[in-house]
């Protein structure tokens, strides 16, 4: 009797050990299969872009490509900056001060991801009800600071990591 019990216990241990090792093994094989779909080294290598901004006139903007996505670089006029800062935070679905969306002392330069935060379309400039951008896909309106004001987009257009290399060049990423 006791001998038999011992036998069953030994078998239970073998089962549990086999399942555990098996599960670890399966997991170790599945993870590479999943992770191979994440951005590869070549994609990650495109992480920074330098842009010459010396030719942009006040009130105008350019669009550059960074990691396959458009970046809007706009040199804002002082009226536009004043307009962006006059907005009450309570009127914003995603409250954020204009000051927090630009670099200190470079208030005229708005650098942001030109991607609607709803479903990823590229908004059109100088359109919409708030003097900023308008997304033609599903009707999101952004203001002159790129903040969402009306429509289905949940958040403001994203500000990427960027820095001024010198007064004429910015490095994105």
């Amino acid at each position: 009797m006791s001998k038999e019990e011992k036998k069953v216990n030994r078998r239970d241990f073998l089962f549990t050990a086999s399942y555990t090792i098996g599960a670890v093994g399966v997991g170790a094989v599945i993870w590479p299969m999943i992770d191979q779909m994440n951005p590869d080294k070549a994609q990650q290598a495109l992480a920074t872009t330098e842009v010459d901004i010396s030719t942009i006139e006040p009130g105008k903007s350019i669009t550059v490509l960074w990691r396959g996505k458009p970046i809007f670089i706009k040199k804002r006029t002082s009226e536009e900056i004043a307009e962006a800062r006059a907005v009450k935070l309570d009127d914003l679905p995603d409250p954020q001060k204009d000051e927090d969306r630009v670099k200190d002392g470079k208030d005229e330069w708005l650098v942001m991801l030109g991607v609607c935060t709803h479903l990823g379309c590229v908004p059109l400039k100088d359109k919409g009800d708030f003097n900023g951008w308008f997304c033609p896909c599903h009707g999101s309106h952004y203001d002159v600071s790129g903040r969402i004001r009306k429509g289905p987009a949940p958040t403001n257009m994203e500000i990427p990591k960027f820095e001024f290399v010198d007064s004429n060049t910015i490095k994105i990423g």
Binding site: I34, M37, N38, P39, R67, G68, K69, L119, G120
Partner: peptide
């Protein structure tokens, strides 16, 4: 772009899932 961005609506992990689907930072 629009269809894959549907997955970015998922809270917390949405953006990671979208990037994973793309294998890049955009389509």
């Amino acid at each position: 772009t629009v269809i894959t961005n549907l997955f970015s609506a998922i809270p917390l992990v949405g953006d990671s899932i979208t990037t994973w689907l793309w294998g890049a930072y955009s389509v």
